[in-house]
């Protein structure tokens, strides 16, 4: 049987399937559906220091094979999340990744410091790419210099591995990935959602109060796969690929372009046990293609 383990350099995951931030709650919500220990890792919904209400409704708009969201990182704040993580640890041994958010660089560093100090947390993911916080979708990951400065500052505060989550809305995502690498990121994950717009023709205004929203789901997979491929060729740190994954074959596509692991997101909304199916499909697909382990195909795209 194929070996599904995913080597991130600083650690090895049981398999390459990680559940993406914002699509998996705080893990607990999925306990009725399956044993979280089967996963490579889970990423908590993004967290700020203090509780955040999120954006006014409507927050969702469905598109063909896609989903626009403007949730606005609603969440209970860092204190409450610490409690949740401790409670979750009693129920699963799955590696927990905390998705760290901030209104400014200082808050990013402070929140990272809080969760770096928790034994129950395996690593941190720096969410410098959420398009739903600032008007117009602006985020640090659109700017290589800002990314470098912020990642360096966060790295000084923490002892845990740091994944930096990148935005497809940067003019040059490769430059941002390289800036994160230079500043000491242990890995990059990409992509966060693509900025999109949906309009209400009758009212002649955007569907969303924040005007723009973030697009995810199968519709973005070819766009995301291209960006992951480009970044994989230009950085040495491991890349975690995501965008529109719904099957085991999708996962292997990302590995082929160079990803060390993947995150699955929107699929968790409409198929709560999707990860179980996807991990089974990776196994079956690798056996069928006689792939013994992921390193055999990782980055092997002929181009």
């Amino acid at each position: 049987m194929a070996d599904l383990s995913a080597n991130l350099g600083f650690c090895t995951l049981k398999n390459p399937v990680i559940t993406a931030s914002g699509t998996f709650g705080y893990g607990e919500e999925f306990l009725p559906f399956y044993d979280l220990d089967i996963l490579g890792a889970i990423v908590m919904k993004g967290i700020f220091k203090e509780p955040r209400p999120g954006n006014p409704p409507p927050r969702l708009h469905e598109t063909p094979a896609g989903l626009l969201n403007s949730i606005g990182l609603a969440g209970p704040g860092s204190g409450k999340l610490q409690e949740i993580i401790r409670r979750l640890r009693a129920k699963t041994t799955v590696p927990v990744i905390v998705n760290v958010c901030g209104e400014d660089d200082g808050e990013f560093a402070e929140v990272a410091g809080i969760f770096s100090a928790m034994d129950e947390v395996a690593m941190l993911e720096l969410n410098i790419s959420c398009p739903n916080v600032k008007k117009g979708g602006a985020c640090p990951a659109q700017d290589a210099k800002h990314t470098f400065r912020l990642v360096r500052r966060v790295k000084e505060r923490i002892r845990k591995p740091l994944i930096v989550k990148l935005s497809p809305n940067a003019a040059d995502i490769v430059a941002v990935a390289q800036a994160a690498e230079e500043a000491g990121a242990d890995a990059v994950s990409l992509v966060n959602t693509f900025l999109g717009l949906a309009v209400d023709l009758d009212k002649r205004q955007s569907v969303f109060a924040n005007t723009l929203a973030g697009l995810s789901g199968p519709a973005i997979k070819p766009l995301a796969l291209k960006l992951v491929w480009e970044v994989c060729r230009q950085v040495r740190i491991p890349v975690i690929g995501m965008g529109g994954i719904t099957s085991g074959r999708d996962v292997l596509d990302y590995i082929l372009v160079g990803a060390a692991a993947v995150q699955i997101g929107t699929v968790n909304f409409y198929e709560p046990a999707a990860a179980v199916r996807i991990i089974g499909e990776i196994q079956a697909e690798m056996d069928k293609l006689k792939i013994k382990d992921l390193s055999e195909i990782r980055g092997q795209l002929q181009a």
Partner: peptide, 17 residues
């Protein structure tokens, strides 16, 4: 009644004020 993404609390899409 609300538009919903998931139905079980994870997406936060069905918020009401």
């Amino acid at each position: 009644e609300a538009l919903m993404g998931c139905g079980f609390g994870v997406c936060h899409g069905c918020a009401v004020q």
